[in-house]
Design a protein around this nucleic acid. Structure first.
Length: 463
RNA sequence: GGCGCGAUAGCAAAGCGGUUAUGCCGCGGCCUGCAAAGCCGUUUAGACCAGUUCGACUCUGGUUCGCGCCUCCA
């Protein structure tokens, strides 16, 4: 029985889908004006894990993750680069796809782009005006009237009074209430724009997600996810828009049943973000670390906990993953369906069902590795690989992981003939010339290659 | 200022009102020509102060510290 921590309830709740056997899930994706950083990687990997576990649990999942391809930063960046908006966004969409594929992320079923849904946004805005939840201002903007939506603040736990008291932005005189937010922005000179009943302009950020989620998943859907920082105002505003627009006879239509928010990636205990400038892009990290190590690093912490990034932590994750792959090395592992009655499989399932407790599930993986190291049982190996596969890990040939690393490629190039040196060393060993044997081993160690002698012969791995 | 989250061993990170989390590192042993890997064993915990309880890391209250949101942000 799956339980999910529902942000809006501030509690773990038993997951019951709207339609038995089916799950509709929407996750706020990226604004594509730059390369993705590790914070984005966490969203992609975490909800990929959620998607995989739901499917493993037998649900027919429709997973939507949007792409924001029009916004201030995109316009600004395109101008700076002297390229069109379409060129810029496509470039970074391609980069994002490349990064996420490396991280083992299964593509969402639907990846709608904001610019392809302007029509839907316009009709939603019109509906909101009709129902009295929005108004067009004299400056050509259209605003949402937060006062008219009774539940405003229910997701983030904020009250309008508190929000107004903490208001740090100068009051825009075009707004009726300082907390009103923009649905449609009047076009400024040299900006891309769409025609609308309120003049040329472009959509605000929040309305994009309301329009795209309802188009693909309906007025009410099961799970909505995103980073913790989107809780307010983005998701709060989505609720206000969608529930007001879809209201019947004045009664709001509940938009989402389960709100999920993943924790931040931090650097030195501070949130990793563009504005702080303390971010590491995925591709930078992948120059040094295997993508599977990064995935393992992200999933070994609970998705709601903060996750500190540092080389030391990545090194730690690398060692741990090495232990797992080492246990599988050299075994002809059969493909076998997972027997969920099996105690370890049951523990794994219990952990995953408890709000996707991957750290606890991973502990089961290490138990299996320990057992496997003792027994060399192919059943155990199959179970370990099978369970890990559910969260997108351990699917490679062990040596593909153990004998490769971005760092090793840089150091050794393709010129190092490890096998030949192993042969030489074994001849030296046979002749009891241990000084020579150790010299060869040391030479390899210096380029990051570790030799291991066993009854099966000598094998190597990267350090 | 308002709202919220957190504080677990050298590092990372979970569960749990009483019984080994787990990984990395360290230490001892086995194995090995020596190593490595592996196995066995092992040292380090629960910020602080009260309370509830037969018993609290786990529940309650308070204190201190850290983080996040309140502005674009995954």
């Amino acid at each position: 029985m799956l339980k999910i921590y529902n942000t809006i309830a501030r509690d773990k709740q038993v997951f019951t889908p709207i339609v038995a056997g089916k799950v509709s899930m929407y996750v706020c994706g990226m604004t594509v004006y730059d390369y993705c950083h590790l914070g984005h990687a966490r969203v992609m990997v975490v909800f990929d894990m959620v998607n995989r576990w739901l499917r493993t649990s037998g649900y027919d999942v429709t997973y939507v993750r949007n792409i924001t391809d029009i916004d201030d930063k995109i316009i600004k960046r395109a101008n700076e680069n002297n390229e069109t908006i379409a060129q810029l966004t496509q470039r970074f969409i391609d980069a994002m796809d490349e990064d996420s594929a490396k991280l083992g992320v299964i593509r969402p079923d639907i990846e709608p782009k904001a610019t392809e849904f302007v029509g839907g946004m316009l009709s939603m805005i019109a509906t909101l005006i009709d129902k009295g939840f929005a108004y067009s201002a004299s400056n050509g903007d259209v605003y949402y009237a937060v006062n008219n939506f009774e539940g405003y603040g229910k997701l983030s736990g904020k009250s309008l009074d508190d929000l107004r008291a903490g208001e740090r932005v100068e009051v825009d005189t075009h707004k009726k209430d300082p907390m009103d937010f923009v649905l449609w922005k009047a076009a400024k000179p040299n900006e891309p724009s769409w025609d609308s009943p309120w003049g040329k302009g472009r959509p605000g950020w929040h309305i994009e997600c309301s329009a795209m989620s309802s188009h693909h998943l309906g007025q009410q859907f099961d799970i909505h996810g995103g980073g913790q920082d989107l809780q307010f105002p983005h998701h709060e505003n989505e609720i206000a828009q969608s529930e007001a627009a879809h209201s019947h006879d004045g009664k709001p239509c509940q938009m989402v049943n389960y709100w999920m928010h993943n924790g931040f990636v931090r650097v030195d205990d501070e949130k990793m973000s563009k504005s702080l400038g303390n971010f590491f892009t995925i591709r930078t990290v992948l120059e040094k670390y295997d993508a599977e190590v990064v995935r393992f690093f992200i999933l070994r912490a609970h998705y709601r906990s903060p996750l500190n990034y540092s080389d030391q932590h990545l090194d730690d994750a690398k060692q741990a993953l090495t232990r797992l792959y080492t246990s599988l090395r050299g075994l002809p592992i059969p493909d076998a369906a997972i027997d969920w009655e099996q105690p370890q499989a049951a523990s794994f399932k219990a952990a995953m069902d408890d709000d996707f407790n991957t750290p606890e599930a991973f502990a089961v993986l290490f138990d299996l590795a320990n057992e496997l190291n003792k027994t060399r049982s192919l059943d155990t190996a199959a179970l370990l690989r099978g369970l890990a596969g559910i969260v997108g890990l351990l699917q490679r040939e062990p040596n593909s992981y153990l004998q490769s690393s971005p760092a090793l490629e840089v150091v050794s190039g393709n010129t190092f003939d490890v096998d030949a040196l192993i042969v030489l060393r074994n001849e030296a060993k046979k002749a009891k010339n241990f000084a020579e044997a150790d010299r060869i081993r040391k030479e390899l160690a210096e380029v990051g290659i570790v030799l291991e002698d066993s009854s099966q012969g000598t094998i190597w791995r990267r350090a």
